[in-house]
Design a binder for these strands. Structure first.
Length: 183
DNA sequence: ATTAAGATGCGCT
DNA sequence: GCGCATCTTAATA
């Protein structure tokens, strides 16, 4: 069952990040659907330094985060990697959930662990910068409830040491004992 | 116009 | 564990 818009409009991005664990992410490209269960997320909010849109910093890159929740935020990191986020909250409140890892369920090459990392999973799913601002209630990218029961663990986020005290926030959520999460 | 740095991943030691 | 590839954005002038 596809999640509807209201799921993404919560003003508590941390709750959304937790709720997304165990949901299934689907991407439809050229009629081919690729899917995977979300097993690792991170929450980002304008309230803390690690976020691109910290303190309502609205730039060309972060403008997507200021849009109404329920759309994709894809951006290029280090000139190489496309990172996929889900924008939450109402328009003007930049918050989002970074998808760091998924467990492949369909349409993805299963031989190698190519989904265990924010840069790799986008490639595995075929997500590109063209998907920036794509509506997640549409037919290109969406998230659906599949009734997965998961034990969620909270930990510190990765790669945000520069954020000082905010790097200590336990805003990374993983599915316990899952082999697909990044290390 | 110029430059520094980044929500990473890979290869090598 | 460490360094590099690679390029867009943003801060500075």
């Amino acid at each position: 069952m596809k999640l509807n818009k209201s799921f993404y409009l919560s003003d508590n991005v941390v709750e959304v990040a937790q709720a997304l664990i165990g949901k299934q992410l689907c991407v439809s490209i050229d009629g081919i659907i690729k899917s995977g269960v979300i097993v690792e997320t991170e929450a980002y909010s304008y309230k803390e330094k690690a976020c691109h849109a910290y303190n309502y910093k609205n730039t060309k890159r972060t403008s997507t985060l200021f849009e109404k929740g329920g759309i994709a935020y894809v951006y290029l990191c280090y000139g190489i990697h496309s990172l996929f986020n889900i924008v939450t909250n109402e328009k003007g409140f930049p918050e989002g959930v970074l998808i760091r890892a998924v467990e492949p369920t369909g349409g993805i090459e299963l031989k190698k662990k190519i989904t265990s990392g924010p840069g790799k999973l986008t490639k595995a799913l075929g997500i590109t910068l063209k998907h920036d601002k794509v509506d997640l209630t549409g037919d290109q990218i969406w998230v659906e409830e599949i009734g997965h029961q998961t034990v969620i663990e909270a930990s510190k986020r990765i790669g945000v040491d520069y954020a000082g005290e905010d790097a200590e926030l336990l805003w990374r959520f993983t599915s316990k004992n899952n082999q697909w999460i990044s290390k």
